[in-house]
């Protein structure tokens, strides 16, 4: 009797091991792609950031920390004094600020939109979601130029306002941080709406009724019941908007002009006109580090402030 159960458990264990091995085998293609496509380029970047910059772009295979130095420091060409690279720091700051503002704007616009969709009858929800995804069909560059067409001095909005005699001269939106923010909000808004909708759809609206019943006004129902319960969606949407905003490249280039650089443009500049590949590589890794630290802080914070599974 004991022998039988003993050998049975042996058999079970062997079967389980075999299954684990088979699962790994099944994962292999995906793992290979992941390692080659994600880690590979990253390792190349890391490697390049520790090399010397070539005269006309490219790298010289010699160890150097210049790339990393130049991320925050700059050596004055006349007196050889090290200074903080103000230009780089202001680009870092602008990138983080604009991405944060874009994320917040997306939450403010996305929340009522997602709420609207989630409260439609089940049949018509797909139609509204379909409308949200339509912009994805168009190339990012074209969408960005469409925004440009709206906000430029001779564009739709300014012309309309002037025709209505509301303003005497066009409002300068183009080539400002505001323009970048408007553009990025437009581009990344669906990435906020979709996760928000997903968590709102799961929300039990009877909880909202229960809160109304227990003397909560509309604003308090929102603050005390709806927002805490859909926090996973807010967190997911914020991450999805913040990360690509931080590295955004096309939108700031088109709408911000040459002056209002963001990190993506700065990096692109190093590989292009700047011909300083190690600096570009070091900046890329820095961007990655900023994203990771921000995410960690954000997720930790949103977990602590009451969400059960934020």
């Amino acid at each position: 009797m004991n022998d039988v159960s003993q050998s049975l458990s042996d058999y079970e264990q062997a079967a389980r091991q075999q299954e684990t091995r088979r699962n790994w085998l099944l994962c292999t293609p995906a793992l290979v792609v992941l390692v080659l496509a994600a880690s590979g380029p990253l390792l190349v970047m890391l490697f390049y950031s520790f090399l010397k910059s070539g005269n006309y772009g490219g790298v010289i295979y010699e160890f150097s920390l210049d790339g990393w130095f130049n991320v925050i420091l700059v050596r004055d060409i006349f007196d050889d004094v090290l200074r903080f690279a103000d230009a780089h720091l202001s680009v870092f700051w602008r990138s983080i600020k604009l991405s944060a503002m874009t994320t917040i704007t997306c939450v403010i616009i996305g929340f009522p939109t997602a709420y609207f969709i989630a409260t439609r009858p089940r049949r018509s929800r797909n139609f509204w979601l379909f409308l949200i995804t339509i912009p994805f069909w168009t190339n990012l560059l074209i969408r960005t130029f469409a925004i440009l067409e709206l906000i430029r001095n001779n564009g739709v909005i300014n012309n309309l306002l002037m025709d209505l005699w509301l303003i005497d001269e066009p409002i300068q939106i183009m080539y400002t941080d505001t323009a970048i923010m408007i553009g990025m909000t437009y581009v990344y808004l669906p990435l906020m709406i979709l996760p928000l909708y997903a968590s709102m759809e799961k929300l039990d609206f009877q909880l909202v009724e229960a809160a109304y019943d227990l003397y909560a006004t509309r604003i308090r129902v929102l603050r005390r019941v709806i927002i805490p319960l859909i926090k996973p969606g807010i967190v997911a949407g914020s991450i999805l908007v913040f990360i690509p905003s931080l590295g955004a490249f096309v939108t700031p280039r088109v709408l911000g002009g040459g002056k209002n650089l963001m990190l993506g443009n700065l990096i692109q500049l190093q590989f292009d006109q700047g011909q300083n590949w190690p600096l570009g590589a070091a900046l890329s890794i820095t961007l990655l580090a900023i994203v990771m630290v921000t995410l960690l802080v954000y997720v930790r914070y949103s977990q602590r402030s009451g969400g059960q599974d934020g």
Binding site: D204, Q206, L207, E209, A210, A211, D213, L214, V225, P228, L229, G306, G307, Q308
Partner: peptide, 14 residues
């Protein structure tokens, strides 16, 4: 000044 006990309770999970 009327309160309800819901069929599936509708307790706040958070």
């Amino acid at each position: 000044p009327v309160n309800t006990v819901f069929q599936n309770y509708a307790l706040f999970p958070h």
